[in-house]
Design a protein around this nucleic acid. Structure first.
Lengths: 185, 185
DNA sequence: AAAAACATGTAAGCTGTTACATGATTGG
DNA sequence: CCAATCATGTAACAGCTTACATGTTTTT
């Protein structure tokens, strides 16, 4: 319940991955290099310090795999506090700012929503996401309509791309929601 | 021609804005706060140091407006080297990596393409953007098809959102291209 | 006279980048 | 035995965030 120090997106990605199954830093690097769950830095200079931070905060623990005595590899898993932090993040309410500036993080959160037992939070998540992205696409649409005469076509088109981007996300969220609706009847 | 030290996206945004017309740091902050050309930090701790860096590199110069002797405001404009750097950046070829990881920067570049006199570079830009985003959407599509059976629906949907995102950008680029085609006949 | 907006900056701290460093294990 | 891959880390540096600091001009 106490307010936890807020993590970077990378940190949450790490928490989610070691929650799926215990992993080493190297495992995680490979995932970031070779799977679509990428868009995160696979550089050792990012990952190992991040893992160390999480360990110091008590969210993960590394067990040394002793099959080879020298050059041990450290397999990380979530602690109770780590699980709590991860699940708390997943269930967080979506703010308008999240939808506008941190869509990437929201999509990562959604991808990990399978960790929540029930679909209720996911439905709420998708409804909020659809609402906020739709609202912002309309804000941008409005700003496009009020652009000064002199605005060159390039600027207009770039803005149009932004409008579309948020609109498409909103539509995606509504479509995704159908997968979690209770098929009542 | 010499390789210039590469700038951050924020730096290029600043170069573009002061190229439109001479501006102060405060002007720029307001633009980032109030117009859709935002998504950049309007914090003084980001902007003033960035302006100072550009000045030290000789890309912009600040003229003190002496209408009020105390608390002077500094109006920045591009130097010849600054113009060269900005135009060089605009005309840069698009790599696949740019389209995958730095779409935001590409859209900023496009928005400033009005500074290039001719439409030829813009056409090339849009063609390359359409090609690369389309190619990557297909890469993701393929990865979605090859996802392990066990992958939860959340992961699939998140990936689908990525596929769509790139596809929509590609379609946008193709549509935008129509505005710059020579209406030959 | 006070509040809001104008206007510019600095300092500490955090995170990520790039580059370097080290050594083990496995496949050809 | 050599190369590639496995595996973990550190160090210097750059840039951004947050918070602070300061003083002016305009509006109410």
């Amino acid at each position: 319940m106490g307010k936890q120090p807020q993590q970077t997106t990378l940190s949450y990605a790490l928490l989610g991955l070691v929650h799926e199954e215990p992993r080493t830093g190297y495992d995680i690097r490979k995932i970031f290099q070779t799977t679509p769950m990428c868009h995160y830095s696979s550089s050792p200079g990012a990952i190992y310090p991040a893992l160390k931070r999480l360990e110091k905060q008590g969210l993960i623990t590394g067990e040394v795999n002793q099959t080879h005595a020298l050059r041990p590899k450290r397999v990380f898993g979530l602690t109770a506090a780590g699980t709590e932090s991860l699940l708390g993040w997943l269930a967080l309410e979506i703010s308008a700012d999240d939808a506008i500036w941190r869509l990437d993080e929201l999509m990562l959160r959604f991808a990990f929503h399978s960790f929540l037992g029930s679909d209720r939070a996911t439905r709420e998540f998708l409804r909020a996401l659809a609402r906020e992205t739709d609202a912002y696409s309309k804000v941008l649409e409005n700003e496009m309509a009020n652009l000064p005469e002199s605005t060159p076509i390039h600027g207009r088109l770039a803005l149009e791309s932004g409008v579309e981007s948020y609109r498409v996300h909103s539509q995606w969220a509504r479509r995704a929601l159908l997968h979690f609706e209770v098929s009542s009847s």
